[in-house]
Design a protein around this nucleic acid. Structure first.
Lengths: 355, 355
DNA sequence: CCCTAGATTGGTATCGCTACCATCCCCCCC
DNA sequence: GGGGGGGATGGTAGCGATACCAATCTAGGG
């Protein structure tokens, strides 16, 4: 029964392992592991030595092994429906980045908003061994999907749901405050005849934005009643709303659309009517989506740190899953992140202030 | 020396493993493994039995274990710079999907196009244990990055580089054919006074598109010389080009911009000059990026199956890395995928054909 | 000065799966 | 009818890391 020196399976040169580092540093693999994972109970001297060895050898832990040993490496789902879609890009970047950081795998799943499709998507997720799901808008608002997911005992983090149910985790901006801030900005510019295009009624963010708008209007007081149209977050719906807003008299001097796509539509319609933006009409949006900087004039809008939000969502998911394993499942968190008013060229003082 | 029955580490109920399936199906774990991995040397009967068991138990292989055992689970990098950015979204979806399919990890890295930044990004990638990199445009054209990457012995797949160097793998559409097709379409509509906005000169796709355009013009023959302006794929540059194209006499009846952002700029400028699209001016783009469907009128353009391309890029990377391990590194492939001309509202017959 | 608590470190046993090899068996051919 | 060839299957040994526990050492309290 002779023991072969080392049955290296694939002839290829193995990468440096924790044992190599341990040998090099003159400690046990365990100690290296502790250092690498920032564990406690390691003396400073040892830590230094080990870190030195790590650097020297260019050691990078094997994710697969680590995941296997620590029963980590869970799969997280990202169920995306049909987000404003420029949204998705940033969202994915942020989510993927966080996933890499935590060493979890991110599984994408597309899903239409019909009950049947939701069910199918959730089933695929479950089959894929996913233990938690990030829900970007607009899926985060779908009660059906949430129910399906909860039935499958998945943890959920909704992103950008302005008023999530109490029992799901959520990360979002303060839509109310943001819309109020934008409206205050318009008022500060001197606008008095305001137009507002509401967002899709099935999203709670829409209502928050609307509430923020009216709050600012009311606190200013002494304004003609704003003209309001219903929109649905699509370019098309924005166009319809814009036509209505721009046909009556008196024309609004500033229009606040509940997202950028609709704001872009307002600008298109304004141009068609030979109204110059921002000289004849101020247009502002919400989201700071891709289109905002890619039209002319650039759109003044509210920026959401989408990537950051997606990242935090994944963080929360991981924390929940790992924490939950140890029994300590904290109550659902609702994390607010900071938004930012981005000024570009589409907003200016009104041409002739009647005030 | 008593053997504890099963020292289950985390008290949590373990998920079903290959052994469970094996026991359930009455075969050895190896056989299950072979079935699950579609290996040969399994009788149909056994295969059926095992698959049945898999379904019954809801077995899903543990990725970490699989990767660890098979020395798989490599990390692939995705180095993105500043792509048309609506691009990125679809690209990520496709790439991530393929990565999940292959069980490899996708690591994102952002990188400006300066040499210093490139070097840093590549170093981070190397440090992260990445063995191959997908290069979406415009990074795929950067010689610096390619050199850095090749110096680090990374495998590279460039996406959408129209004429990649012979030694890197590539997946792209046939920009030449696509541009020619679009131009033929314009000519078929009856346009004779054409305008063309070239793409950024540092991207090979630009030249291919330009070549496709001229090829169609020449094969048609008997046309006034098209007006041509240089663009740089940005909205801004498109605006400049549009101003020039729309100021001389005679006005072009159709403008073909080398990407959608520039086409959108042409439309914006046309509107400003009270030219109606498509009645007074036909505008077409290239890429079918997000903006194409989100402006009015919708942009007729060339659709690239971006997600598919990204997916194939990852496939190629994986194949190369895994194949390369077995020594059989095939020569760099250049894979062409099909494009599609998408007609929306921005193109129509010219108002008065002078022909 | 002994004893306990806590800090630090090492050893061992897996984690779930697959590579590699040994084995068994069936069938064909000389 | 025996020897091969190859299909089908099982056994064994890790892959590289961490969890858990034991062992050692240091420092105070009684």
């Amino acid at each position: 029964m002779n023991k072969p020196a080392r049955k290296s399976r694939s002839g290829a040169r193995r990468s440096v392992t924790i044992k190599d580092v341990a040998r090099y540093a003159g400690v046990s693999p365990m100690t290296v592991s502790r250092v690498v994972n920032g564990g406690q109970y390691v003396s400073d001297a040892t830590r230094q030595t080990v870190m030195q060895a790590v650097r020297q050898l260019g050691y990078s832990p094997n994710l697969a092994a680590r995941n296997l040993a620590s029963a980590r490496g869970e799969r997280m789902g990202l169920l995306y429906g049909n987000p404003s879609a420029s949204y998705l890009s940033e969202f994915l970047v942020g989510a993927l980045d966080a996933a890499t950081r935590h060493g979890v795998q991110l599984v994408l799943e597309k899903c239409e908003m019909t009950p049947a499709a939701s069910r199918r998507a959730v089933r695929r997720l479950v089959a894929g061994g996913v233990v938690g799901v990030v829900l970007p808008p607009p899926l985060c608002e779908s009660a059906v999907i949430r129910a399906e997911l909860q039935a499958a005992r998945m943890r959920i983090v909704a992103v950008a749901a302005a008023r999530p149910p109490a029992d799901v985790m959520c990360v979002s901006i303060d839509d109310f405050a943001a819309a109020r801030e934008m409206t205050r900005y318009l008022l500060a510019l001197g606008h008095t005849r305001l137009g507002f295009i509401k967002g899709h009624p099935n999203q709670t963010a829409s209502e928050e934005r609307w509430r923020g708008f009216t709050a600012a209007v009311q606190e200013h007081g002494n304004l003609p009643a704003p003209r309001v149209e219903q929109g649905f977050f699509t370019f098309r719906s924005g166009l319809d709303a814009a036509r209505k807003l721009l046909s009556g008299e008196p024309l609004p001097s500033a229009i606040f659309a509940s997202n950028d796509d609709m704001a872009a539509a307002v600008m298109a319609e304004a141009h068609r009517r030979a109204l110059e933006v921002p000289n004849d009409l101020t247009v502002v949006g919400f989201d700071d989506s891709l289109i905002a900087a890619n039209i002319w004039p650039g759109l003044t809008t509210i920026h959401q740190p989408i990537a950051q939000m997606a990242g935090e969502a994944v963080d929360m998911l991981v924390a929940s899953v790992r924490g939950g394993k140890r029994g300590a499942l904290a109550e659902p968190v609702h994390r607010l992140v900071a938004h930012e008013l981005v000024t570009r060229e589409s907003a200016a003082r009104p041409k002739s202030t009647t005030a």
